[in-house]
């Protein structure tokens, strides 16, 4: 039987990967059963909060939970980092949204696929890699982090991939370089790759699409524009794909990376930059008043990162 809206949605587990990245496991049996790789959810942490889209990082129909990996960069996600402890709940959680990634079609012939996850995109890449593996594909994972301390889920990926290329920007773990370097290595080694899937910040997905364009390898990317409802109603998430305008929430979020206008996507992500900056500063001010100044993080991440969710 159905038990969808037993709000608040309870957080049953949490893991902190670094001082900015954390994982939440939320109970939602129906969604855990319905979710497919490539889909996303919209979360409202509290009644006064905003609706933020987050790509599903995992789902477990047996346990009845879904997994989100969040990077605390803007006001909402930093607030969530503080408030979302085990036992607490989310005010709203709706999904799974978007068209699931088309996995069965390509992998039926046991083709080779490269799954590229960069930064926070590593997390939502995992269910896709696993699904390709289960569908019989030869999966080459390429995951990238800034440095050794930010590496997470390496073992999960090793389990889901036939080969794994781990990249760090400073070379402190795996190979030194960006995921695009890792992607090039993979493509050199396997000239017969049938498909590349890239998830991460738009600039990374753009670089991946550029890297595969000359080789004419099909490249799917998962875009992450600003959204309100996630049901095709507001049009805030529109992206240019080829000569068409598509809504990421109901027509995507997966699109052909060679057709997506990434410059347009990146420009549209800055729509509320001023407001986001103001909200974050206000919130940090209020935190300063509540706490000793020592807890203030030394470096402010880019506040625009927030909307890129993952």
């Amino acid at each position: 039987m159905h038990s969808a809206a037993a709000a608040p949605y309870e957080i049953v587990a949490r893991e902190d990967f670094s001082d900015v990245t954390f994982l939440l496991e939320v109970r939602h049996p129906l969604m855990a059963r319905a979710a497919r790789p490539g889909q996303f959810v919209i979360v409202m942490a509290r009644p006064e909060g905003e609706r933020i889209p987050l790509t599903l990082a995992d789902f477990d129909p047996q346990e009845g939970t879904i997994t989100l990996v969040i990077q605390a960069v803007g006001k909402t996600t930093r607030e969530m980092q503080q408030a979302c402890q085990v036992g607490a709940g989310l005010h709203a959680l709706v999904g799974p949204m978007g068209i699931p990634s088309q996995i069965a079609k390509i992998s039926a012939a046991a083709k080779k696929v490269v799954c590229v996850g960069g930064g926070l995109g590593v997390a939502p890449m995992f269910p896709q890699a696993r699904a390709y593996k289960q569908a019989g594909a030869y999966v080459i994972g390429v995951v990238g982090y800034r440095n050794k301390d930010l590496v997470f889920w390496e073992d999960k990926f090793r389990g889901a991939c036939d080969e794994l290329v781990l990249c760090t920007n400073d070379g402190s773990a795996g190979m030194k370089g960006f995921v695009t370097d890792g992607l090039r290595v993979a493509l050199e080694k396997h000239p017969d790759v049938a498909e590349v899937i890239a998830i991460g910040p738009p600039v990374m997905m753009k670089a991946c699409a550029d890297a595969t364009r000359a080789r004419k390898v099909k490249t799917m990317v998962s875009v992450n524009p600003i959204m309100v409802d996630g049901t095709g109603m507001c049009g805030g998430c529109r992206v240019k794909v080829g000569d068409k305008v598509k809504f990421a929430c109901v027509d995507g979020p997966d699109f052909d990376g060679h057709l997506v206008d990434f410059d347009d996507l990146m420009a549209r992500l800055t729509r509320f930059a001023a407001q986001e900056k103001m909200a974050l500063e206000r919130w940090l001010d209020s935190c300063r008043m509540m706490k000793p100044p020592a807890e203030e993080p030394a470096e402010l991440p880019d506040p625009f990162e927030e909307v890129r969710g993952g």
Binding site: E48, V228, G236, Q275
Partner: peptide
């Protein structure tokens, strides 16, 4: 739709008390 949803349902008119801009 976006303007109205932000303003009415998400109460963006009370930003920054409400988070939606």
């Amino acid at each position: 739709n976006e303007l109205l949803t932000r303003c009415n349902l998400m109460r963006a008119r009370d930003f920054p008390k409400y988070d939606t801009p």
